Simulated assay, not measured.
Amino acid sequence: MILIKNVELFNPKSMGKKSILTCFDKISYISKKINFPSNNFPTVEIIDGDDLIAIPGLIDLHIHINGAGGEGGFNNRTPELNLTNLTLNGITTCVGLLGTDGITRNMGGLIAKARALEKEGITTYCWTGCYSVPTRTLTDSVRGDIVLVDKIIGAGEIAVSDHRDSHPSEEDLIHLACETRIGGIISGKCGVLHMHLGDGKKGMTPLFDLIDKSDIPFENLLPTHLNRNSLVSKQALEYLKIGGFIDITTGIKNEGDTAQSAPELYSKILKENISPYHVTMSSDAGGSMPIFDDKGNLTKLTVGLPSTDMESIRECIKMGLSMEESIIPFTSSPAKFLKFEHKGSLLEGYDADLILLDKKLNIHTLISKGRIMVQNYKPVVYGTFENS
């Protein structure tokens, strides 16, 4: 058991000063004051939270846990992420995925990496597939993967409007969305089709066409990278206004002529009186971030970092957003959208995934599934092959 005493709690709503008791992997009690019998009571680890802020652990729904890349050749394949790459950056739940390369990276390797991180101490899920359509699967279909594999919650990242995609037809996308949705219905999972939006001329047009010409609900579709240029950012606002849900990439900064940072686009969305529960944010960590010229030649290659999630929260607050508004896209919004029960909030009976921040919003302590993973700004639990 862990008792966090007298901490400022955001749920993500502000709840004032509270004490939080965790027991095994759950939050068992939240109150203004918690006392224990003096005799014959199990050992409780006590954390003084007087100068700290408690928020839910971050949910990153788009992260290349077993590496990605390869757009510049085999030497450009990005490495796998280690446990502390995630915990030191506040991530207690992640959804792993493949990207451009569905050949040298495959679903078997992705599932294995997800299970390894789960064993080491965080919660993991996966999207099935990669950029291409027909996409890569473990079973004979996307529907089969979602129904039969516990880790798989939907399909992604399927690429559209990108010179690296397989140019799926309108019928291809509708069929894939239907397969994903039905897999979710049968298995009780979210059944979301998670789509990568590139810099192509059509932007989000394929997504608008999918909505217009099929019966797929908005709740089964989640486009991402929508802050990458002015075209898709503008279309994202239109999509939100008709009821859609979007994911914004924290790893995309104000680079080039039209890219926007995640906090910048999010702030514009809130000013349009759009619910923050229609927005999620994710890092694209571990994924390559290539820059191509107008002829499709690779000119620069960087790697997404998990640190951009917490950096975006700090930037949101610096821009004048409240703590609640700033953390919703990383906590309660993805938990609700992806049907992660008992995640994304600090409530009794919920998973004991939480972050203790200092007044500068640096991570002082991170608890995942009731286990202290980071304490006094340093990891206390390492991945199997990490040097402690």
Rank of each mutant, 00 (worst) to 15 (best):
N75F: 11
K32E: 15
V380C: 14
D50T: 15
A285N: 05
I274D: 03
G144V: 04
S307F: 06
V381K: 15
I313N: 10
G96V: 00
I216C: 00
L97A: 07
G156S: 11
G344T: 13
I46V: 14
G256E: 06
I182G: 02
S388T: 08
G109T: 00
T250I: 07
V303I: 15
N254E: 15
G200E: 11
I111P: 00
K201T: 11
S141C: 10
I53W: 12
E8G: 03
K360E: 15
S333T: 06
L366Q: 05
D172P: 10
V380S: 14
G200Y: 10
N229S: 04
L237S: 07
A352K: 10
K213M: 09
M373W: 08
F385N: 15
L117K: 02
I111F: 02
G109R: 00
K336W: 03
V374N: 10
T180V: 00
L148F: 12
S333D: 04
K13R: 13
G144F: 07
L148I: 04
V133L: 01
L61V: 13
G72V: 09
I248V: 13
L321E: 03
A155Y: 01
S132W: 08
S19L: 07
L357K: 05
V279R: 03
Q235F: 04
T78A: 08
G144R: 05
E179T: 02
I153V: 05
I269C: 06
S161F: 04
K378N: 12
G198N: 10
S19Y: 12
D50P: 02
P56I: 13
K5V: 06
T331Y: 05
N297M: 05
M1D: 10
T258M: 11
S28C: 14
A352Y: 06
K33D: 06
S214E: 00
N75D: 13
E238K: 01
A285Y: 12
P37S: 11
M289L: 14
A68N: 14
G108P: 04
K378L: 12
L361D: 04
H196Q: 03
E171W: 02
V133Q: 00
I317Q: 06
G251A: 12
S233M: 11
L237D: 06
K378F: 07
I47M: 12
G108H: 13
G320V: 06
T302G: 04
D165N: 14
I4N: 03
L117G: 08
E264C: 04
L207T: 00
H225E: 09
I182Y: 02
N89C: 07
K241G: 08
N273E: 14
D150R: 13
A159F: 05
S14D: 15
G121T: 12
I252P: 00
I216P: 01
N387G: 02
E238T: 09
I53Y: 14
G57S: 10
I30M: 07
S31E: 14
I27F: 05
I313A: 10
H225N: 08
A112N: 01
P276I: 09
T258A: 13
N376V: 05
N89R: 09
